[in-house]
Amino acid sequence: MAVSTRSVISVAGVRKTYGQTIAVDEVSFEVRDGEIFGLIGPNGAGKTTTMECVEGIRKPDRGSISVLGLDPFRDVYQLQDRIGVQLQQAHLQKRIKVWEAVHLWASLYKKPVSHGERLLEQLGLGDKRNAWFMTLSGGQQQRLFIALALINDPEVVFLDELTTGLDPQARRAIWELVRGIRARGKTVFMTTHLMEEAERLCDRVAIIEHGRIIDVDSPQALVDKHCPDRSVALTTEAPLAEERFRALRSVTDVTRDTARFTIHGRGDGFITEVIQCLAEHQMRVGSFRTEQPTLEDVFLKLTGHSIRD
């Protein structure tokens, strides 16, 4: 993918309070042109507040935000023509028909309805044109919201908890659609509390907790940085196996349950070293499995608790 380093969104030192509650504080990050950027964290961490400040729906108390060179709150109407928005837990009128929503949106953005009709087809809603909003499934409603967010051919698309409440199959279908948005050269700024979703979809993520950004990077880089430990689980009957594993430079620990070994280590060369060791000593291996830490582990490491707590 062609992700440039030009920023389309930059957020610096943003703070937003509701009464006595500080929703977000000192939030700063950049979203680059053409990437899928994820704001990840548990519910109530400040994801939606941050996103709505960036969309121009809320005014931050402090800090500065620039989207496509515009101030989202001051230039909200100018910006609206260039961004597409999907809001968390939004609905349409129960009895609005799918095509009516698409036509209304097209007219609001002064776009030909044919573009909207094409989006419906592309998003698999062609046969739901005449259905009332209330009769659509959760996945269909989200696909309609994606269609509406794309109707003005926006440069940046905002997706807030897009797959919450969807079954795994619908979720995967939505992921494909989001990759498709990136493939059209658009920038995607999304929030999610699903680490798996962030890991599979996002080029870069910002981890937010209690209203503060903890770290920003690609999922892989975050994992390498915060959870460098890897492990290999294998079974072997070879003599001296434990001693040989322990002798490897990158190995930190070996645990053993008769022929079942778990080898812990860190660094890029760790798995290679283990494999080389097995080959060198011609050890017969019954099973071999490597275990990679995930964003979930990174989150646990950084916050001291699981995202589901």
Binding site: Q80, H91, L92, Q93, L108
Partner: peptide, 16 residues
């Protein structure tokens, strides 16, 4: 009803 369902909010996030 529109406010409770987030419909007002959704409509407001358009050029309306």
């Amino acid at each position: 009803i529109y406010r409770e369902g987030g419909i007002l909010k959704r409509l407001r996030a358009t050029p309306l």
